[in-house]
Simulated scan of single mutants.
Amino acid sequence: MINILVDDIVPIIVIMALGYICGKFSYFDDDQRQGLNKLVLNIALPAALFVSIIKSTRAMLAKDATLTAISFIGVIVMFMVSYYLCRLLFHHSIQEASVCALIAGSPTIGFLGFAVLDPIYGNTVSTNLVIAIISIVVNVVTIPIGMYLINLGQAKDRAKLSVQAENAVNAKVNAKGDITLDPARDAATDKTAELMVHGTSNTGKNRNGNLQALLDALKQPICWASLLAIFLVLVGIHVPSQVAPTFDLIAKANSGVAVLSAGLALSTVKFSLGWETIWNTFFRLILTPAVFLGVALLCGMGGDMNKISMLVMAVALPPAFSGIIISSRYNIYVKEGASTTAVATVAFAATCLLWIWLVPFCVG
């Protein structure tokens, strides 16, 4: 257990702190920081996800139907619960709630799955199966859902701003018959309205919100790379092992740069340890694994204590770093997201020990 803390948790905290210090001393400017985020989100992370998913097989997914079903349904349900609770409890927009779900509702299985589970349970087929299933659900299902919701929220905001700008112009035109207005001020108002609409639009044209949000999400490398990998797995196309090093070289930069970028994002906002950060941390580290433990016991997995323990530990990991990268990249939910990531990563050192002790107690 000491090795897990020293080898896995401490380096994350140190690198995140390094990013925070670099941000505070302006070692990276805004363009460079966004460049790092773009590197992770569009290149390194898609490569890492592709490599991790294609190592799975159809046999692995079909080996334990109960485990697969609980993982698939459970991760999606908890993701959506996080989304709706964020909107209900803290009154956030669609975009903000979707990023919250990507952070509080998703474990960083791609970064810490093998690093945490292998030392505890060994590098076995069962360990690889649990990590593979959770990785596939998080990367192939919840990330595209999150990107879809972000684009959907942006589309609704564009439509709303468009209507507001049109109403403002109409009100001004109607008032001209009775009130003498300053032409220079009118021009400035028109320009402001134009910039508001243009600045929140990708093309300046009205589109079907749901369809376009879905298409925009599928265009993201983080989505189509994961979907391509799962398609290859499901149809049984084996990617030669010689191909993996090509992706591994850039994928290896993913974890370090992602954590560094999380620290940079945290340095740009005032750190918050409010109720929302505490709730997100509780949801990620305590509530989610507790729900999975209860459902697994109800579904008859209590006979295999090792497997149920691995499942609980896999979903008890800190927030997915892909969520904070998406947050920083689109400047959505940055303060709360960065604070949640930092607090939950530190708190995992304690909750990890809690679940290792608690699961055998509950099963026994």
Rank of each mutant, 00 (worst) to 15 (best):
53 I>V: 03
53 I>C: 02
53 I>F: 02
54 I>R: 12
54 I>L: 04
54 I>D: 02
55 K>E: 01
55 K>Y: 00
55 K>L: 00
55 K>F: 01
55 K>P: 00
56 S>N: 10
57 T>G: 04
57 T>I: 00
57 T>M: 01
58 R>T: 06
58 R>H: 02
59 A>W: 00
59 A>C: 00
59 A>D: 11
60 M>W: 03
60 M>V: 07
60 M>S: 04
60 M>T: 08
60 M>P: 05
61 L>S: 02
61 L>F: 15
61 L>H: 11
61 L>Q: 09
62 A>L: 05
63 K>M: 00
64 D>W: 07
64 D>N: 15
64 D>H: 13
64 D>E: 13
65 A>G: 02
65 A>D: 02
66 T>V: 08
66 T>H: 13
66 T>M: 11
66 T>W: 08
66 T>N: 09
67 L>I: 14
68 T>S: 09
68 T>H: 06
69 A>T: 08
69 A>V: 02
69 A>W: 11
69 A>P: 03
69 A>R: 12
70 I>W: 10
70 I>H: 14
72 F>M: 08
72 F>T: 15
73 I>G: 13
73 I>F: 14
74 G>S: 12
74 G>D: 10
74 G>W: 10
74 G>K: 10
74 G>P: 09
74 G>A: 05
75 V>E: 05
76 I>P: 08
76 I>R: 12
76 I>H: 09
76 I>S: 09
77 V>W: 05
77 V>F: 12
77 V>G: 03
77 V>Q: 09
78 M>V: 13
79 F>M: 05
79 F>Q: 08
79 F>Y: 14
79 F>D: 05
79 F>W: 14
80 M>Q: 15
80 M>Y: 12
80 M>S: 07
81 V>M: 09
81 V>Y: 10
81 V>S: 08
82 S>I: 02
82 S>D: 07
82 S>Y: 06
83 Y>W: 11
83 Y>T: 01
83 Y>A: 03
83 Y>C: 01
84 Y>D: 01
84 Y>A: 10
84 Y>S: 04
84 Y>M: 07
85 L>R: 15
85 L>I: 14
86 C>K: 04
87 R>Y: 00
87 R>E: 01
88 L>Q: 15
88 L>N: 11
89 L>F: 15
89 L>K: 15
89 L>A: 12
90 F>A: 04
92 H>N: 08
92 H>K: 15
93 S>R: 14
93 S>T: 14
93 S>W: 06
93 S>Q: 07
93 S>D: 06
94 I>L: 10
94 I>G: 02
95 Q>A: 09
95 Q>K: 15
95 Q>N: 11
96 E>S: 15
96 E>P: 08
97 A>Q: 07
97 A>K: 04
98 S>E: 09
98 S>L: 01
98 S>Y: 02
98 S>N: 09
98 S>D: 04
98 S>R: 07
100 C>G: 13
100 C>Y: 13
101 A>V: 02
102 L>K: 13
102 L>E: 12
102 L>M: 15
103 I>E: 10
103 I>Y: 04
103 I>N: 09
103 I>A: 06
103 I>S: 10
103 I>W: 08
104 A>T: 03
104 A>C: 09
104 A>M: 06
105 G>I: 01
106 S>H: 12
106 S>W: 07
